[in-house]
Structure formats: C-alpha cells, structure tokens
Design a protein around this nucleic acid. Structure first.
Lengths: 170, 170
DNA sequence: ACAAACTATCTCAGCACTAAGCTACTTAGC
DNA sequence: GCTAAGTAGCTTAGTGCTGAGATAGTTTGT
C-alpha cells in the first residue's frame, strides 16, 4: 500500500527526473506525521479546555522543580516560539487564572511565572490523558522500533544544533 | 550529550514518576525536529520570495501531470490544510500572477488552477535549492538509516490512516 | 419533474504566531 | 561614577491558519 509520499516521489520522478528527491521520503513523512500527531494531541488538549500553546506552558512549569516557577525567557527557550508568543500565551493563561506573574526581586526587568492551584490541578488532570494519547499514536511500533526511532531523531536533532542547555537561571 | 527531550523525560521522571512518559522520547523529538526542519526549509523558500504555503501549492501543481492543472479540492487534499486556507493561498498566488483560476466547464461550481509561465519558472528555479536543503538536513544519516527511518515513519502514517488516494478527478 | 441531500468554493471572524521594535533595567569596561 | 552595550519582557502590525457557514451547482431518489 503506497502512502501519499510515495505518490509524490513518483510524480517528481516523472516531472523532474533530473533531481534526486529521495530526501522527501523522510522529510515529507516527518512533516505529515508531525501534523497528524499534532492534530491528535490537540483533540486531547481540547477535552481539557486547552490548546497546544496553553498545554505547553502549563506542562513546562509543572515539570520544573518546585515551586514550578520559571521566567518568560526560560519558557521561551523551552518552547521553540518567540518571546512575543510567550507573552501572549501568558496573557491568556493569566486571564484564565491558571498562572500568575510576580516581579523578580533580583532583576527589575523580569517576572516569575508560576502555576495557580487551578493551573496545577488542570495540568495534572490533563497529563495522563495526553500521555495515553501519545502511547496510542505509537501503538503500531514495537518497543525496539520506538527506541531506534528515538535515537535516529535525536541524532538528527543534534546535527541541527538542538543541544540547548535548559538549566534554570536565577 | 543529552538533548532537550532527554532533559524533559528526566524532569517528568522526578515530578510524575507514576506516569510512563516514554512515548515522549519519540513524539517530542518528532515535533522538535519537524519545527527545526520547517524553519530551515523556510529560509530556502524565502530566498526565492516564497513561503511554505506558496511553495506547497506551486510544487503540487508542478508535480501533477501536464497541463499541471488541479481543482482547489485536489490541492486541499494534497496539502493537509482546510479549503479556506487553500482559497487564501490561491488568492495570494493569483494576485502575484503565479497561478490562474479558470472555470471548470464540466462542473459549474468549480474552477481549475494552473501555473502561469512565471509560476512554472519560479517553482522550477526553487525546487533544486529546496531539494539541496533537504539533502543537507539529512546529512547526519547514512543511506541505510534514512531508508529505515522512512519505513518507520510510513508505518506510523499508515497506522494513523494516512493512506489517501490522490488520483486526479475530472 | 421535483425535492432533498450532497458538494465545490468562497467568506468571515477569530486565533496563535512572527519579526521588528520599544522601554526600562542590568552589566561590562574604563 | 559614568557610559556603552546588552538584555527581559512587552507591544505592534501583519501573517497564514481554523471552524463554521453561505451560495450556487450537482446528484440521488421518487
């Protein structure tokens, strides 16, 4: 059974036989798969009244050491979005009473972001469902294949420079 | 050298040891990698005055059989975006003189989208650079590992139902 | 022939994101 | 102490996308 990317490769072979389009076999599938998984995860987020952006912030705070407190810059570095996007995410979450911003006493320019009790409870409820969805999405792969895949993806990430040090800064 | 996802897994292990978060090793890396690759590809598109959306339409038309003519619905099915997004993409491209819409004589509701000469020339110029960027992104992998990765990704796509038939319709 | 159901494409209001820039604060160098 | 350079987080204007819906055309069933 050919998938969509096989079809694309065949078309390019016919229309531009001069080009070696073989990387599309990987990159096209990565892109498609990522989008499908994003959509699947979004459904689980929505069941908890969250979207991907909100979940991302709440989860990042939750997985940090107690008191689950981070600066906007730390959230930005963890999230692969711009500082403007983080500001907007926090605006929305603060408006919903899921996080608070408090001044950073040791740096007059900065704030600290923490989970409210409600935010903490919500992420703790959503997380098991999120993880279950992730398990389900990978059901077709054996444990061995999953490990192999994770290793390959990690090698690619490292080759693209994704080795950020995420130590919290005071 | 631990990557960011390793760090996340370690954090969850400490904060929620009750959960088996192992799928994140794959899904987190898929997501990160996809975003990094998207950003890298976007730089190449930009060098040709294109964005991802525009490139997607032009490429989809270009790889279809001559006369490289498709309906908006076909473009939508190939692109993983909504019909509204396709309309907007076409609006932008038509405004730039890169595609045309002509009525579909056999169905009064529909139009056909084709490349203009300029659109054809632009995508034919951009494509080799795009493919070169894709090659570069996968440089860290041997051919064998790339094949293995493509196969694994394909299995996952199929398991998620991504087996769309993309035959053109009259 | 007619009506109901379906469909192709566009429209609309709203969404999360971006790049560029701004303001106020902090650090480095003298 | 002072100034230049750097930085934290927010603001702004614009971007491409979404879901829901609208209009007009096509198909199905009687």
């Amino acid at each position: 059974m050919a998938d969509h990317v096989d079809f694309i490769l065949k078309q390019w072979g016919a229309q531009r036989p001069d080009l070696d389009v073989s990387p599309m076999a990987v990159i096209g599938r990565l892109s498609r798969l990522s989008r499908l998984i994003d959509a699947e995860l979004a459904r689980t987020f929505a069941a908890h009244g969250l979207d991907r952006a909100s979940f991302d912030v709440l989860a990042t705070l939750r997985r940090s050491d107690p008191p689950h407190r981070l600066t906007p810059a730390e959230l930005m570095r963890a999230s692969m979005v711009t500082s403007g996007a983080v500001t907007q995410r926090l605006d929305r979450l603060e408006e919903r009473g899921l996080v608070t911003r408090t001044p950073n006493e040791s740096d007059g320019r900065g704030v600290y972001v923490t989970l409210t009790e409600e935010g903490f409870a919500l992420i703790d409820r959503a997380l098991p469902d999120h993880v279950a969805t992730e398990h389900r999405v990978l059901d077709a792969l054996s444990a061995e294949r999953r490990e192999e895949l994770a290793g390959t993806l990690r090698d690619l990430l490292e080759s693209l420079g994704d080795v950020t040090d995420l130590s919290p800064r005071a």
